[in-house]
Amino acid sequence: EETYEVDGEEQLKKVEKMLRDRNLDVEVEIHNGKFVIRAK
C-alpha cells in the first residue's frame, strides 16, 4: 500500500491518474484540508 499527501485538486488529479494508470485501487480522503491518497 502506498500513501500520498497532496495539497490542492490539481496535484490530486495528477497523482490519482498516475496510480490508476498502474491499475491500482485508489481511495481519497481529506485530512486537515489535505488530500490523502491511498493506493493498493
Score class of each variant (00 low, 15 high):
D7S: 11
I37N: 00
R20M: 10
Q11Y: 07
R20A: 09
M18S: 06
E2D: 07
A39P: 05
V26K: 00
E2S: 07
R38Y: 07
K34M: 10
Q11D: 13
G8Q: 06
F35P: 01
L19R: 00
H31Q: 11
F35H: 03
K13S: 08
L19C: 05
K14M: 13
K14T: 10
M18F: 12
G33D: 06
L12N: 01
E5R: 08
N32W: 02
D7W: 15
N32A: 05
R20N: 07
E29F: 14
G8N: 15
K14S: 07
R38F: 06
V26Y: 15
V6W: 04
G8D: 15
E27W: 15
R22C: 15
V6Q: 02
K17E: 10
E16P: 00
E1A: 10
E2P: 07
V26S: 03
F35W: 12
K14G: 03
E2Y: 13
K17L: 07
K14E: 13
L19I: 05
D7H: 11
E1Y: 15
V15F: 09
V36Q: 04
N23I: 01
D7R: 09
L19S: 00
V15T: 04
V15A: 03
L19D: 02
N32F: 06
L12H: 02
V28L: 04
L24F: 14
Y4P: 01
D25H: 14
D7K: 06
N32M: 06
V26Q: 01
R38P: 03
K17W: 02
K13Q: 11
T3W: 15
R20Q: 09
E10F: 05
T3M: 14
E2Q: 07
R20I: 06
L24P: 04
T3P: 03
V28Q: 00
N23W: 11
E5L: 13
N23E: 10
L19Q: 00
Y4H: 03
I30L: 09
R22I: 04
D21F: 04
V26R: 00
H31Y: 12
L24Q: 07
E5V: 15
G33W: 00
I30F: 14
N32I: 03
E5M: 10
K34H: 11
Q11T: 09
K17P: 01
R20P: 03
H31M: 12
D21Q: 05
L12Y: 08
V28H: 00
G8T: 15
E5G: 02
D7M: 12
N23R: 07
G8K: 05
K17Y: 02
V6T: 04
Q11H: 06
E29N: 07
K14N: 08
K34F: 08
R38C: 12
G33P: 02
V15M: 11
E9Q: 09
V26D: 01
R38G: 03
K40H: 12
V28S: 01
E5S: 07
K34T: 05
M18C: 15
V26C: 11
D21Y: 04
D25M: 14
E10V: 08
V6H: 02
I37C: 03
I30C: 14
D7T: 12
V15W: 07
M18A: 11
I37R: 00
I37V: 12
F35N: 01
E27S: 14
M18Q: 09
N32G: 10
N32K: 07
K17M: 10
R22W: 09
E29A: 10
I30R: 10
H31I: 15
E29W: 14
T3E: 10
F35M: 05
H31R: 14
R22Q: 10
K40S: 10
K13A: 12
L24D: 02
V15N: 00
K40Y: 12
L19E: 03
V36L: 12
V36S: 01
H31V: 15
E16Q: 12
E10W: 06
E27M: 13
H31N: 08
E29G: 05
K13P: 00
L24M: 14
Y4T: 01
I30W: 13
L12T: 01
E1C: 15
R38L: 04
I30Q: 09
M18L: 11
R20W: 08
R22F: 07
A39R: 02
H31D: 05
E1L: 12
E5W: 14
I37Q: 01
Q11L: 13
L12E: 02
I37A: 01
K34A: 04
L24H: 05
K40M: 06
R38V: 08
I30P: 04
V6I: 10
A39N: 03
E1G: 11
D25T: 14
E9V: 12
R38H: 10
M18D: 05
V36R: 05
Y4W: 14
M18H: 06
F35C: 10
R20H: 10
K17D: 09
L12K: 09
D25L: 14
K14H: 09
V15L: 14
D25E: 14
E27R: 13
A39W: 11
K17S: 09
V26I: 13
L19V: 02
T3Y: 14
E9F: 13
H31S: 11
V26M: 10
E1S: 11
V36M: 05
V15I: 14
L19N: 01
V26W: 15
K14W: 12
H31G: 05
M18I: 09
H31T: 09
Q11V: 09
K13I: 10
T3D: 03
E16D: 03
D21W: 04
K40T: 13
K17V: 08
R22E: 05
R22L: 12
E16V: 15
D7E: 13
D7Y: 14
R22S: 07
G33A: 01
L24V: 06
L24T: 02
A39M: 07
K14A: 14
M18K: 05
G33T: 02
K34D: 01
Q11E: 15
E9H: 10
V26N: 01
R38S: 06
K14P: 01
E1K: 09
E27L: 13
R38T: 11
A39T: 11
R22K: 10
E10I: 06
E1V: 14
I30V: 12
V28D: 00
E1I: 14
E27V: 15
I30E: 11
L24G: 01
K14Y: 12
N23Y: 10
M18W: 15
Q11K: 07
D21V: 02
Y4V: 04
V36F: 11
E10Q: 06
E2L: 13
E27G: 03
D7I: 13
V36H: 06
K34Y: 10
I37E: 03
K34N: 03
L19T: 00
K14F: 11
E16C: 14
E2W: 15
E5Q: 08
F35T: 05
V15R: 01
Y4A: 03
R38K: 11
E9G: 05
E2V: 12
F35L: 07
K13M: 09
E16L: 15
V36D: 02
K40R: 12
K40D: 04
L12G: 02
V28A: 00
I37K: 01
V36I: 14
K14R: 12
R20F: 08
G8V: 05
T3L: 13
K17F: 03
K13T: 06
E9Y: 14
Q11N: 10
L19W: 04
V6M: 04
E10D: 11
R20K: 12
N32V: 04
R22N: 08
D25F: 13
V15S: 01
E10Y: 06
E16Y: 15
E10C: 15
D21E: 12
Y4F: 09
F35Q: 03
R22V: 04
R20Y: 08
V6K: 02
D7F: 14
H31E: 08
E9I: 14
N32E: 10
K13N: 06
M18G: 03
E2F: 14
R22P: 03
D25Q: 12
V28C: 13
G33F: 00
L12C: 15
E16I: 15
R22Y: 09
G8S: 15
L24W: 11
D25I: 15
I30D: 07
N23F: 12
N23L: 08
E5T: 13
K13D: 06
V36W: 05
K40V: 13
N32T: 02
D21A: 08
G33C: 14
F35A: 03
E10R: 04
K34L: 06
A39D: 04
Y4L: 04
E16M: 15
L24Y: 13
D25G: 08
I30K: 09
Q11S: 10
E27Y: 13
D21T: 01
K14L: 13
D25S: 11
V6P: 02
K17Q: 13
